[in-house]
Design a protein around this nucleic acid. Structure first.
Lengths: 162, 162
DNA sequence: TATTGTTATACTCTATAACTATA
DNA sequence: TATAGTTATAGAGTATAACAATA
């Protein structure tokens, strides 16, 4: 984080507001593309709680249902994935278990660990949820086929590097 | 709410099963593009709370600071923008006002309405926040210039239709 | 009467700290 | 001693319902 470039000429930065100058128009292509993508992202994310509520899930629960499809997950792994403290996962899973969506299973390798799996009901809910999530918003659906193909291929390349 | 899995007697869907058949590979271009974009979105959104925390803001507060730059906003408009009940905005704004980021101003046209504006301190924070938000994640920064140009232009076209 | 913002209440998500049961 | 999960507690975000001031 301390990677400030050449310390001597650092003052020129003061005269250069972040979003003006030639860089905003020509250079800094990654920032241009990202800023627009981010705007679209946020416009869409506003609807996520309402979308989760269609399935009587909180946003985080929807996130967990989606993630848990990949297979059993240790509580701690889930906490890490959610970028939250492990103590929160206890309550989160309590509520989802009470609704019959997930199950805790003790690991055989390490009896401290509890693995989470979706119940049949959880799997069914997940399928409906994924299908709903895959519905493209108007903003995307309105794009031309050429744009959609390009977008798809670019996203594939971006995600491949992950 | 019975099993969606096997029984395809669902004529409403007009022969368009969700994730199977040739459409998953060739047709339904919007869904393909959207699903990948959505995946990238969620991968990135996991970091948003931590990013907001860099400025000692909750995710919602960061959202509000960002939005409030466009000009004064009525409480009700903000509630609508956040897709939440108006009662929540009271507490949200209380906390942000206590931190000196925003101000309530009574409207002169309609004395029931209170307009929110950023304080000088709020404006300064917003500038730092926007600059931080504009930093492209590795996933995007790693794309080729051609891809970045295409992505930028496609996003412009998508957002223009909004 | 209808609308804007507030208050009261309750539930969920989140962090910190102390605890347990394993390892 | 260290780690996985739990419990206790507290603050923030959210919804619903009842309310005051204004339209």
């Amino acid at each position: 984080m301390s990677g400030m470039s050449g310390s001597s000429e650092n003052l020129e930065r003061r005269g250069k507001p972040p979003n003006s100058g030639p860089e905003a128009l020509e250079g800094d292509l990654p920032k241009q593309a990202w800023t627009l993508l981010f705007e679209l992202m946020h416009a869409h994310m506003r609807n996520f709680p309402a979308l989760a509520a269609e399935f009587e899930l909180s946003p985080v629960q929807a996130h967990v249902v989606r993630q848990l499809g990949e297979g059993p997950l240790a509580m701690s792994t889930l906490a890490n994935y959610l970028s939250c403290d492990a103590s929160n996962v206890t309550g989160l899973v309590d509520r989802m278990e009470a609704r019959g969506l997930v199950e805790r299973r003790s690991s055989e390798q390490d009896r401290r660990v509890k693995m989470l799996v979706l119940t049949d009901s959880g799997v069914a809910l997940r399928e409906r949820l994924l299908e709903r999530l895959a519905e493209p918003p108007e903003l995307i659906a309105a794009l031309s086929d050429d744009d959609l193909r390009s977008l798809r291929d670019i996203m594939r390349r971006a995600l491949r590097s992950q």
